[in-house]
């Protein structure tokens, strides 16, 4: 099996895993969950860093730099805003 095929296997299995993970979620957690998963796709920052490192020429540098800024905002802002939302659920009696 080639490496590409292996990644494809992982892709398909991850789809099913994602479905299983949140099969039962109370509606009050819909938004925090959306926000939390939003932060997780901020892993695109890794992609931004990798392509900026290998960028050639002015345009690629600019595009890569913007990608890093956007990815960083996604990941850090995402986790922080989710934490702020969930902080408000803290007090239970």
């Amino acid at each position: 099996m080639t490496a590409d095929m292996l990644i494809f296997f992982i892709f398909v299995l991850s789809i099913f895993l994602g479905f299983e993970l949140i099969s039962k979620v109370p509606s009050m957690l819909h938004t925090p969950l959306m926000s939390g998963t939003n932060a997780i796709h901020g892993i695109i920052l890794l992609g931004g860093m990798l392509v900026l490192a290998s960028a050639e020429g002015f345009i690629q540098h600019v595009a890569g730099f913007i990608a890093v800024v956007l990815g960083s905002a996604n990941v850090f802002g995402g986790f922080m805003v989710t934490d702020r939302m969930l902080q408000m659920f803290k007090r239970k009696k």
Binding site: I7, I10, F11, S14, I15, F16, L17, G18, F19, L21, I22, S23, V25, H30, L33, M34, T37, N38, I40, H41, I43, I44, L46, G47, L50
Partner: peptide
């Protein structure tokens, strides 16, 4: 990058269900 594949896919499928 395998970490991006896994994290992205998890968000994609759980997000669809959500």
């Amino acid at each position: 990058n395998i970490a991006m594949v896994i994290a992205g896919t998890l968000v994609g499928s759980s997000g669809t269900l959500l």
